[in-house]
Design a protein around this nucleic acid. Structure first.
Length: 500
RNA sequence: UCCCCGAUAGCUCAAUUGGUAGAGCGAGCGGCUGUUAACCGCUAGGUCGUAGGUUCGAGUCCUACUCGGGGAGCCA
């Protein structure tokens, strides 16, 4: 029997002869035995080629076969503890499809810029592959959650008029001679649809011309936005926490091995369970300016310094003369040294930043928007996601509904992911009173004519409603433990630079 | 727009604080084998980001520029 099967399915074909169609991931050639690690898009499999068991000429060809050459390879599946996946292939034959020479991405370390320039090839690497699998599950879980909960999908336009948040962050395009903008949210359109279907969501690419150059920003990213008629703040918070919990549970179920490969914090993810922590902006201000934060920052600094000492001790050990050590041991040590020095410099930055961030928190005054470092402090204080609600209206968008019991604040919320990752959701209850909304539009100097259709929603059967937006890449980065969200989309678009 | 860091071989980095350009990986050749980023030997590979300046002498010091990384503001 000669079945063509997927590597992910091999454990169901023990002792059978199968043919894999894939690419060479690693080639460790030897005199009499070759270890060919083959990938086929579903996983990795070590293939053993023994001299004498296959054609002599083929053995020679396989021995010289470069990384990422494509081939069909046939052999007997057997369990083998020494192989990474628990099974391996005892090769009986192979057909080389395409010989790859001088593949640029080698098994050793590479820099960020180099990998981005080779993004089309980097997608084949194990780590990128795992992140892509997790992203797929996240998106699938997003759609399932809303579809199973009575939401209707609405596709909002990519080309939009100036109606939105801040014009300075919009990408302008030439639309048959007139300016138009790429969508930075589907929300206003979605509000219209919510008045038709009740519960709706949109999901698609979003464009922001923000001049941000950080690990949390892309100029093109994917966002899912639910919008619910007759919903108040409490319902939205509940929706948000159930939604995020369902995503995390789906990834834990579908991608455990990927999370392990990525070295994600699985134990922390397993603790994600509704209800999440709820704090008002005013409570956050009190925490930031209170004793709790002073102590927290001091403890954090102490922890950093202890860690620094441990690393420095180890570095001193490694820097001692290494006589009598085998060459490979020396190399291993040298590599550890480089890694430790990298960690040390990162730690030094954190130690340097700690007092600055402590000062920023202590100096925080009611009315300002929370900064990145403030959010980090709050999220690090909890091992669950944290909702921060009721921000000052002045720092927030015009469409957010003012709290009728405290006109200074709006009924909005951000969700901060744990472990210091930061904001993954931003949402609010929308202003549903025609006159209040019109006044705000006028006060901001916008032209009411541009917002007539949006105002109409408050004229004909207005109801309380609201929604939120969740950033897919930020969510994937948080779940996988990836530091930078550019790794969480196949072809990232960043400020200043698009590689391919 | 502003602040900090960086640019040396295909890749990742080093060069004793101004004195003849180095290592590992990768590539090529050979050896070896149940290897896990294997290992051992040999070979090839560089206009030190660009342009000026200081100096007897610059990878190293100064100035400008280009490109890249991180961050602030803003945000998902």
């Amino acid at each position: 029997m000669n079945d063509r099967v997927c590597i992910c399915d091999l454990k169901n074909h023990i002792d059978a002869e199968v043919t894999l169609s894939g690419w060479v991931y690693r080639n460790r050639p030897g005199g009499k035995v070759l270890f060919l690690v083959v990938r086929d898009g579903t996983g990795l499999c070590q293939c053993i080629v023994e001299k004498g068991k296959i054609d002599e000429e083929l053995f020679g060809q396989l021995k010289r076969l470069g990384q990422e050459s494509s081939l069909r390879i046939t052999g007997l599946v057997r369990t083998e503890e020494r192989s990474a996946g628990g099974v391996e292939l005892g090769v009986t034959g192979a057909e080389i499809v395409n010989v790859s020479e001088d593949y640029p991405i080698t098994p050793k370390a590479h820099g960020v810029d180099f990998l981005l320039k080779h993004r089309h090839l980097h997608l084949r690497s194990q780590r990128q592959w795992c992140i892509g699998k997790v992203r797929h599950t996240v998106i699938d879980a997003v759609r399932r959650f809303f579809n199973d909960d009575g939401f209707t999908l609405i596709d909002t336009p990519i080309f939009t008029g100036a109606v939105g948040e801040g014009e300075q962050t919009l990408f302008e395009v030439d639309y048959f001679g007139s300016p138009l903008y790429l969508a930075q949210t589907g929300q206003l359109y979605l509000e219209s649809a919510a008045m038709s279907y009740g519960k709706v969501y949109c999901f698609g690419p979003t464009f922001r011309a923000e001049k941000s150059k950080t690990r949390r920003h892309l100029t093109e990213f994917w966002m899912v936005e639910p919008e619910v008629a007759y919903a108040g703040l409490d319902e939205l918070l509940e929706l948000g926490e159930n939604f995020v919990t369902s995503i995390v549970k789906a990834v834990l179920k579908e991608n455990r091995s990927e999370l392990e490969t990525l070295d994600a914090d699985i134990a922390a993810l397993e603790k994600i369970e509704a209800p999440f922590v709820r704090l008002t902006y005013s409570e956050v201000v009190e925490i930031l300016t209170g004793e709790q934060t002073v102590k927290f920052m001091a403890d954090q600094l102490g922890g950093f310094e202890a860690e620094k000492e441990t690393i420095e001790t180890r570095i001193a050990e490694l820097e001692k003369p290494q006589q009598g050590l085998k060459k490979w041991q020396q190399e291993k040590n040298a590599k550890e040294l480089v890694e430790l020095q990298g960690e040390l410099s990162e730690l030094n930055i954190r130690i340097e930043n700690n007092p600055k961030h402590a000062q920023l928190a202590a100096d925080f005054r009611w009315g300002k928007d929370l900064g990145g470092s403030d959010e980090t402090i709050i999220s690090l204080m909890h091992n669950k996601p944290v909702f921060v609600t009721h921000y000052p209206g002045e720092v927030k968008a015009f469409y957010m509904k003012h709290d009728r019991s405290n006109e200074k604040v709006v009924e909005n919320f951000d969700l901060l992911a744990p472990l210091g990752f930061g904001e993954i959701i931003g949402g609010s209850v929308r202003e549903d009173d025609y006159d209040v909304l019109l006044d705000k539009i006028k006060a901001l100097g916008y032209n009411p004519d541009d917002y007539q259709w949006y105002l109409d929603l408050r004229k004909y059967g207005s109801v309380p409603h609201g929604g939120f937006g969740l950033g897919i890449e930020r969510t994937v980065a948080w779940i996988t433990g990836e530091k930078h969200i550019r790794q969480c989309i196949a072809f990232p678009r960043m400020r200043d630079k698009i590689h391919i």
